[in-house]
Amino acid sequence: MTILAREQRHSITVKVNGLRYTGMATPRTLLADFLRHELGFKGVHVGCEHAVCGACTILLDGLLARACAIYAVQADDTSVETVEGLGKPEALAPLQAAFQEHHALQCGFCTPGILMSAKAFLDDVATVGVAPTEQQVREMLSGHLCRCTGYDGIVKAILACAEQAIGKSRHESG
């Protein structure tokens, strides 16, 4: 059993986007703060710290998680994916490129979290092999707040990627 005392800083090892990082955290350090300020993953954004806005959404051991509602100590020995792992500015991943094409972001503050949700969602889509309806995309997005876009461009970008994901999974299985 692991027991960590409140006042002390403990060494936490996390794999982020495939690379191993070690940093220090007290038990109450939010995973979002740890990723941002201890490890430097500033693409993890914080908009509410109470698990509603979705800006801090990441993948933790493959599952979507609000990094503001998880403590760094919980993430010891896990693997995390953040927006920094998706694509590079000069070589955007298709999902990111679709966001640019469909003007799915304005200030971009909500965007990293939405991209991570969209990634998980599109992985599901590829597994199931059925294109989502606009309504299903909107339902998925309802776990995020964006104050700039009115969501329209985001919905379009994800629908466009879903088509591709289906096409690809058909191709692979065929």
Binding site: M1, T2, I3, L4, A5, R6, E7, T26, P27, R28, L30, E49, H50, Y71, V73, Q74
Partner: peptide
């Protein structure tokens, strides 16, 4: 908006918990 300090325990088994 940060929590108060707390100790953290991560039991491996139900008995420990």
């Amino acid at each position: 908006m940060k929590p108060v300090p707390f100790d953290y325990a991560r039991p491996e088994t139900l008995e420990e918990a």
